[in-house]
Design a protein around this nucleic acid. Structure first.
Lengths: 159, 159
DNA sequence: TTGAATCCGGACTCCAGCGGTCGTATACTT
DNA sequence: AAGTATACGACCGCTGGAGTCCGGATTCAA
């Protein structure tokens, strides 16, 4: 599995949409929902949450809606996912503060914790602006290289 | 969220346990379950699955149990997770063959697909042997470096 | 040969959480 | 005042994860 929720997907899509339309005074939840064929009410709640954590600014009333509260390159995918889905842990026995109850028996968690950090780091280095640039300026894509200790290239692709 | 299931956790733990006891003729599901305080019947089904895909060899009857069918350094975490949880996709709209139905509307999936690949690559480079060596020979840990296009180090830690 | 230990596998229950809806209250614009 | 939007809590169906039960097949040992 290892998948993030639809809500997080929707959040990223909505933020991307807002970033793509900086000229607009404000875009309503309805506008974005229709653009992506997302249930309006569900997206509304997501945007409310993003407003609560300060990623977007909300504006009620006619011609109201949402505007990005930060620059698109200052909002990471990690922040968005964290805001919507909560803390992400690859293993189920992790909690914010401590470890699982069976510390000595669950000897797997330590190496997986580093995998967790790796994933987090990758997501932290992807920003809304990267999503917007997608398909336009492919030359500006971020280059990510993963190497093993011996120096052999394990992975090398754009993010 | 973004977490893998407990079953996958159990599978990794069981394989690690088997790798740690190569001298034993065979370890039963009960043995492993008791060692880690895992529900026996649940672990049994997991081991059955691992046997089906050829990761372990099963042996019924008295003093029966399971033995690794491959070398611990030839079994990656990715394989294990795939065998238990099936294909992992970070976005919910992905399927094995095609994309989501709303190809043009869901413009997020392309960059996230690369994140998916990154995660997969990391998991493919972690093997059961790495879990066993954990805490013993820290010098032999794999070193993973992730750099951005500009060359700045984003991440640098052991896996 | 009998029985104990073990693997095999389908069917089943339980339940948290995801995805989504509804209704109402509140805020803002004109 | 009326219309449009956000804000928010309550509600709900359902999928899927976690775990159990049980009958059957295999193997070994006494």
């Amino acid at each position: 599995m290892l998948r993030l929720t639809k809500k997080a997907d929707y959040a990223l899509m909505a933020l991307k949409y807002l970033a793509e339309h900086p000229e607009s005074s404000a875009l309503s939840a309805k506008d974005i929902a229709e653009a992506y064929h997302i249930p309006q009410q569900l997206l509304a709640k997501i945007l409310q949450r993003l407003a609560k954590v300060g990623m977007v600014k909300s504006h009620a009333g006619m011609n109201g809606g949402y505007v990005l509260a930060k620059e698109p390159d200052r909002i990471s995918a990690f922040e968005v996912i964290f805001a919507i889905d909560g803390p992400l842990f690859i293993t189920s026995c992790f909690t914010q503060e401590g470890n699982c109850d069976l510390t000595n028996s669950c000897t797997i968690k330590e190496p997986l914790a580093r995998v967790n950090e790796t994933i987090s780091s990758v997501l932290k280095n992807i920003h809304i602006s990267d999503l917007v640039e997608e398909g336009r300026s492919p030359m500006e894509r971020k280059l990510v290289t993963i190497r093993s200790a011996s120096g052999e290239k394990i992975l090398h692709h754009v993010v």
